[in-house]
Simulated scan of single mutants.
Amino acid sequence: MNDVLKGRAEALLALHRPGNPVVLPTVWDAWSARLAVDAGFAALTAGSHPLADSIGKEDNEGMVFDDVLTRVAQITAAVDVPLSVDIESGYGEAPERLIEGLLSAGAVGLNIEDTVHGEGGRLRSSAEHAELVAGLREAADKAGVRVVVNARTDLFLRQDGDEADRVDRAIARLTEAAEAGADVLYPVGVHPPEVMRRLTSELPLPVNAIARPDQSDPSSYGPLGVARISFGPFWQAALAERSKELLARWI
């Protein structure tokens, strides 16, 4: 199994090409995963928000890590493509437990954010976040699989601090995570083109952008230097709106 996981992890990392972004539809169960793979996508990501919604839990670590692993294992049993998993801020688990759990469930990538939901939603310092990234990298190395670590910062989502230097602080924070062993960097938020260009040009690793599958222009991300596109909760939300329309016909 380790050889399979190694191959999937290597394949996932190779898909990250700045200017020619890989699209990883954000799935939440076996059904949505099969839908995306049947449509032709080569890899997937499981999002914490849609995952939590799918089992009646709240986002921001309303699930426990074992809940996540149960769902992840269902997804990887249903599709034969690399899967990355949004593990929020780590569910209070040690890096070794996070890596072991993800690999045992068949995942080969992860998102790790710097908001600590289990501690009142505080923001980790950049050094603290980098230390966690380093711990995840070390644990993955010990397991023998190059788990693709996507280091996320919530500075834009939280509108943290002064807007005038927010991009500078995000670049500094994510650069520190890159030096600690991240593979991909995720300044989560919907950014104006000039901000995204600056992020992709000044950050040292491939950059993940978020998109709305029913509204965003797929061709707009490559020219901005983006290497990875995911949907966050927006694909599930778009399906929910369409479902309301269908169901309303019968009320």
Results as ranks from 00 to 15, higher is better:
Y221D: 00
V81K: 03
P193L: 06
T200V: 00
S230E: 09
S230A: 08
V145L: 10
G7E: 14
A46G: 07
W235A: 13
E138T: 14
L51D: 05
G90I: 13
E179D: 07
A36S: 14
G90S: 04
G144A: 14
R242A: 15
V184L: 15
G118E: 12
A238W: 02
L51T: 15
P204K: 01
G40T: 04
R146C: 08
G92E: 02
E58M: 13
A178N: 06
H49T: 13
R173H: 08
L132Y: 10
A182P: 08
V167E: 09
R137T: 08
D67W: 07
I112N: 04
I99G: 12
R173G: 05
G47Y: 07
Q74G: 09
Y221S: 02
A240D: 12
D217E: 12
V79S: 01
D66I: 09
G135D: 02
T76M: 04
G222T: 03
E61N: 12
V188K: 01
N208E: 12
R97G: 00
R166M: 13
A78Q: 02
A172R: 05
S89Y: 02
Y186D: 07
D168M: 00
G7Q: 15
D183T: 08
T26V: 11
V116L: 14
W31K: 09
G120Y: 03
E179R: 10
R242T: 13
D217L: 07
D214G: 04
M1V: 13
M63T: 15
A178Y: 04
I112G: 05
L51H: 11
V4I: 13
G7K: 15
A36P: 10
D114E: 04
V149P: 01
G121D: 15
R212H: 15
R124V: 01
W235G: 07
H16C: 02
A43W: 04
R249M: 14
D168L: 03
D59F: 14
A134E: 13
A182E: 14
P95L: 09
F156N: 02
T175N: 03
A107V: 11
A77W: 03
S243M: 13
W28Q: 11
E96I: 01
